[in-house]
Amino acid sequence: MGTGTSIGRVRGLGSAHQGTHHWWHQRLTAGANLFLMLWFMFSLARLSGFDYASVHSWLRSAWVAIPMLLLVVSIFYHFRLGLQVVIEDYAHHEGKVVLMVLLSLFTVATAAIAIFAILKVALGAAA
């Protein structure tokens, strides 16, 4: 907690005690996702083929691996925030807590696999 007055510390936080943090981060990642996904779709469409060798050598490039890592971080954070709102809308009581925990597990686990896979291809030997 800050050193301000008690009203200063809670101002803007509202009944959820979170303020606009969730909302703002969803917008920030939305802006990032717009550019990252447009790049992703262009890059995919311009691939010479979708066979193993073509896709593997595509992902090996730093110009692809780095945007892909950024994409995973931004997209996964964005969908974590979005699915949280869905749970808050439709689930209540204990079920809500369980679903929130499962959502966090799902997000972190899938993100870890995706990031590891990208790094393995990017830093590993050529196919």
Partner: peptide, 13 residues
């Protein structure tokens, strides 16, 4: 989408 993206990347790796 997430499951497919992760499966695709993991399969590639």
């Amino acid at each position: 989408g997430t499951v497919l993206l992760v499966w695709w990347l993991a399969a590639l790796a």
